[in-house]
Design a protein around this nucleic acid. Structure first.
Length: 496
RNA sequence: GGUGCCGUGCCCAAGUGGCCCAAGGGGACGGUCUGCAAAACCGUUAUUCGGCGGUUCGAAUCCGCCCGGCACCUCCA
């Protein structure tokens, strides 16, 4: 194998360092998944794409990967400490919203959005995790963990729930660079709960017998705290010390900080040897929000006519360690690049078919470019450079597209396969039903065909005025004509 | 108030001490092809890296100050 190692920025130590594996040759990786109370937006997917690229890079290096990514299907509180005062949570709120009216209860709502999420996941060519645990299916383990933490003196029960006592875990804050002292004076608008020993203490279990999702526990009816599920499920499927734990930058504090406290208090061992966090995606230079009208979901973009691979390409075009600005322009740029891969793929297929004699004129170059792309990925997932190198390969192929020898075409195939394994941008891995039915322009293919024939006849008669007029009229309808050596073809111009 | 991050060409975006008079994409411009176009392919497009100082033989890269922008601080990928 190669001597390359995957180097990633580690939030804990604030430096780029090699990913060291507890068990050599085997990466055990946990990536925090979404809460399924609504459609996931492209910012969520940027984070999941970081995880996806890590496993692809690790696999390219010959590493076996056990990848776990959860689904949070329990609604957690929109505000801490208001369980008694009405207990509204994200799921309950979603159920009461306009979109939520179609569901009979929160369980159906969660199931619906989970299905939608998995579909978007597949469309963006994300690899399936080995395990995709759900919070609701690990209730017993979570309750046991809370009991153990109480028994060990790291947690205590109050009339409102079970809380983790941060003072019992002195290094609380180490991931986010906070100290407990700073956190205390920094607290903004925390609702005070007199039952808590320390206002920074966080819930392991919330008592609430009116909650829409509730389970029975030794503490009575209620539901688990948000942070507990990840600690419990990560340990269950990956062991006490993970190699790598990932999520969005907003999870650094409090979510991952709390996971560390719970897990390490419980096991006495480091929870994860490496932490990575993806910076936020902005849309048109602003934070995504529903009120600004820039809350882009995958299906919204697909309905506008975007290619799912182009969405993927646009989302990975910047490095995960910096905020990325997603714009309509960046998406259409990406569509052009995806098209180059598609044409390369077609050219290679045609070259294999034609089986022309000749040397392999491109194999060595393509191999170098692949190596450079892989090097870039190993260097803290430098997707910008990796994509640049990968794209250079399409230029090499397309330059000789018409005349590729069989040997060259074979090299091209190997190259595109490897690039696709590494970056997932050449071909969709799963074929899914077309989503863009509703808003796609309706076209009358027979009519276009007739017009094209009319134009061909006009051209033969040297009546170029009429030929140009037909082309112009169709263009006004969003249909573009291209005269190719194989004849005239038409394409639908993108609405983006 | 606390904790982090960022500012590179017209736009997006790599590069974090010499291989950088700064990758790649878009755009623009020129060429090939074409009846003309479109598409495709080829080429050109930053002596310069928010500003000012400093360290160094050498800085976009390190340090200081200033200006501008962003995120988190118990809902958030």
């Amino acid at each position: 194998m190669s001597e390359r190692t995957l180097r990633l920025y580690d939030t804990m130590t604030r430096q780029v360092k090699p990913l060291e594996l507890v068990e050599p040759g085997h990466l055990r990786f946990y990536s925090c998944g979404p809460t399924v109370y609504s459609y996931a937006h492209i910012g969520n997917f940027r984070t999941f794409l970081t995880a996806d690229l890590i496993i692809r890079t690790a696999q390219a290096l010959g590493t076996r990967v056990t990848y776990v990514s959860n689904i949070t299907d329990v609604g957690h509180l929109t505000q801490d400490d208001v369980a008694d005062a009405g207990g509204e949570d994200k799921m309950a709120r979603a159920l009461q919203s306009k979109e939520g009216e179609q569901f009979n209860n929160v369980w159906e709502l969660a199931e619906y959005y989970e299905d939608a999420f998995l579909e978007d996941w597949a469309r963006l060519n994300l690899k399936e995790p080995q395990v995709r645990p759900r919070a609701t299916q690990h209730m017993r383990e979570q309750i046991v963990a809370a009991e153990q933490l109480i028994a060990q003196g790291n947690a205590y029960e109050t009339p409102t729930g079970v809380y983790f006592n941060v003072e019992s875990f002195p290094s609380y804050g180490k991931l986010s660079g906070n100290t407990q002292e700073n956190l205390k004076k920094a607290s903004r608008e925390v609702v005070l709960d007199d039952n808590k020993r320390d206002q920074s203490d966080f819930a392991l279990w919330k008592k609430d017998d009116k909650h829409l999702m509730q389970w029975y526990s030794p503490f009575g009816w209620g539901f688990p705290g948000w942070h507990l599920e990840c600690s419990v499920m990560a340990r269950m499927y990956l062991g006490e010390t993970l190699d790598l734990h990932a999520g969005g930058e907003d999870l650094i504090f409090p979510h991952h900080e709390c996971e560390i406290a719970q897990s390490e208090a419980l096991t006495g061992k480091p929870f994860s040897n490496h932490w990575i966090h993806t910076r936020f995606l902005q849309v048109n230079g602003e934070k995504m929000s529903k009120s600004l009208g820039n809350y882009y979901t995958v299906r919204f973009l697909l309905e506008k006519g975007a290619d799912p691979l182009a969405i993927r390409y646009a989302l990975i075009s910047g490095v995960y360690t910096k905020p990325l600005n997603f714009t309509d322009q960046s998406l259409s740029d990406a569509m052009g690049n995806i098209d180059r891969y598609r044409r390369s793929d077609a050219a290679v297929a045609a070259g294999l078919e034609a089986a022309r004699p000749g040397d392999d004129a491109i194999g060595t170059l393509l191999e170098e470019l692949y190596d450079q792309a892989l090097d870039a990925m190993c260097n803290d997932l430098n997707t910008s450079v990796a994509l640049a190198k990968a794209l250079e390969g399409t230029r090499v192929i397309l330059r000789e597209a018409e005349t590729l020898s069989l040997a060259s075409a074979e090299s091209g195939k190997v190259y595109l396969d490897r690039i696709n394994d590494l970056l997932g941008i050449v071909r969709p891995e799963r074929v899914l039903a077309d989503l863009q039915t509703e808003s796609a322009p309706k076209v009358d293919e027979a009519r276009i065909g007739a017009l094209i024939q009319e134009r061909i006849d006009a051209k033969k008669a040297k009546n170029f005025a009429l030929a140009d007029q037909i082309r112009k009229d169709l263009e006004a309808e969003g249909i573009e004509l291209r005269d190719t050596p194989e004849g005239t073809v038409w394409v639908l111009k993108s609405t983006l």
